[in-house]
Design a protein around this nucleic acid. Structure first.
Lengths: 208, 208
DNA sequence: GTCTATAAACGGATAGAC
DNA sequence: GTCTATCCGTTTATAGAC
C-alpha cells in the first residue's frame, strides 16, 4: 500500500519529496487542506510553486500520499506493537498508550488523517476509509476479547471503541508541547480515563 | 452576543436567513467550509447566488453567525440545564447526556463549531475561542467540585475534561440516524464509558 | 427581494527556458 | 531540478434591471 511514485535514482533528489509532504502536513493541520495553497508549501520548503510539481502529481494525490503515510504510522507504531501482546487487557493499554504518544510526538500526518477525507477523490477516499476501518476493528476486537474474558463492564463495544478513538484523536487539538504535562503524562492520564471506565478492576490493570 | 443583522421588518422576510444558515451548516458538515460555494447554498434554498447576498454579509460572517448559533445551543441546552443541578455528580451526568443528545439530534451548527475555526477572521476566532473556553471551564469546574467532594478518582481534571469533550464531539463523525442504536442509547453508552472511568462508585451514580 | 451579468482576484497546473 | 511566465477554471462579491 506504499505509493509508487517512480523514483529517478539521481544523486541530488534525496528526501525532498518527504520534505514537501512534511511541510504540507503541517500547513494542513494549521488551516486545513482547502485553505492551503501550493505557494505556501513552496515558500515553506524554499522553492517556487512550479518547482514542487516536479515531485508531486497534483494537490489531491499529495493529500492521499500523506494520509497513507499517516496510516502507515498507525499500523507500525500502534498495531505493530500491540498485536504482539496476547493478553487483551495489556493489548488495550498498549494501543491507547502508543497512539497517544504518536500524537503528542507531533505526527502531523496522523492528524491530517482525521479531518480531511473530503479532499480525496472517491476512489482514494474508499481506500483510506478501508484502512481506517481495519484500525477501528482492531480496537473493537480487543474489547470483544476482553468481554469474552469477563473483564469488561456492560458497555457496547462499538460505542466504546469510538469513544476511545474520540479521546485519542482530540488530543492533537488541545495538546501543546510547552504545556505543564509531558506527552507521556498525557498518555497516562488518558489511559486512566479510558480504562477506568470499562474494566472491572481498573486499578489493578493500571498498576501493571 | 447575538448577531445584530439589521432586520427589515417587512412582511415577506420571515426566517429566510435561518433557512440559509441551516442549509450552509449542513453543507459545511458534509464537505467543509472552504469547499462549500455560495452557489451550493443558493441551490439548496432554491435561489441564486446573488439573491443570498441580500441576507448575509459575506461568507466569513455567515460562518461566524452559524458558530455563534451553535454556541447558543450549547449554552442553552447543556449549560442552561446542567447549571441548575447543585450536586456535581448529577450535573456531570446532565452535561454529558444533554450534549450527546444535542449531537445525535443533528444540530449541524454545533458540529461546525468543532472543525472550522480556521475559517474565521482573527477577531472572530478570538471571540469563538473565548466562548468555547467558558464551556470547557464549566466542565472542568464540575470535575474539580467532584474532586473536592472526594468522589473523583486520581485523574488530572484538565485531561479528563478534554477527554470527555473528545468522546462527545467525535459522536457527530460516526453516528448515523439509521444505525442500530437510538440517540438516547448512544448518550447512555457514552455516559457509561466516561463516568465509569472517573467516579469512585460509577455504578451507583449511573443507576441514578 | 430576486434576478442576469460581470467584475476582480485567486489558485492549480503546465510550457518551456536554463 | 528549478525557474519565469502564463493559461484557464473557479469563486466571492457587486452592479443594476425588474
Amino acid at each position: 500500500m506504499m505509493r509508487p511514485q517512480k523514483r529517478i535514482a539521481r544523486s541530488s533528489e534525496p528526501d525532498r519529496r518527504a520534505e514537501i509532504y512534511d511541510a504540507a502536513a503541517k500547513i494542513i493541520c494549521d488551516k486545513g487542506f482547502d485553505a492551503m495553497t501550493m505557494n505556501e508549501i513552496a515558500q515553506a520548503v524554499g522553492m517556487t510553486k512550479a518547482g514542487i510539481y516536479h515531485y508531486i502529481e497534483g494537490k489531491q494525490n499529495m493529500l492521499f500520499a500523506i494520509m497513507n503515510y499517516g496510516m502507515d504510522m498507525l499500523d507500525q507504531s500502534v498495531i505493530g506493537v500491540a498485536s504482539q501482546v496476547d493478553d487483551a487487557e495489556k493489548r488495550l493499554i498498549a494501543i491507547i498508550h502508543s497512539h497517544a504518544r504518536l500524537i503528542t510526538q507531533g505526527s502531523n500526518a496522523v492528524t491530517v488523517l482525521v479531518d480531511e477525507v473530503a479532499g480525496l477523490s472517491p476512489a482514494q477516499r474508499k481506500k483510506i476509509i478501508q484502512r481506517k476501518r481495519v484500525y477501528f476493528d482492531f480496537i473493537r476486537d480487543t474489547l470483544e476479547q476482553l468481554k469474552r474474558d469477563g473483564k469488561l463492564k456492560d458497555v457496547d463495544t462499538t460505542v466504546a471503541a469510538f469513544s476511545i478513538l474520540g479521546m485519542l484523536l482530540w488530543i492533537s487539538r488541545w495538546y501543546r508541547h510547552d504545556g505543564k504535562l509531558t506527552g507521556d503524562q498525557i498518555a497516562d492520564e488518558v489511559l486512566k480515563v479510558a480504562l477506568g471506565g470499562m474494566l472491572r478492576s481498573p486499578l489493578r490493570a493500571l498498576r501493571k
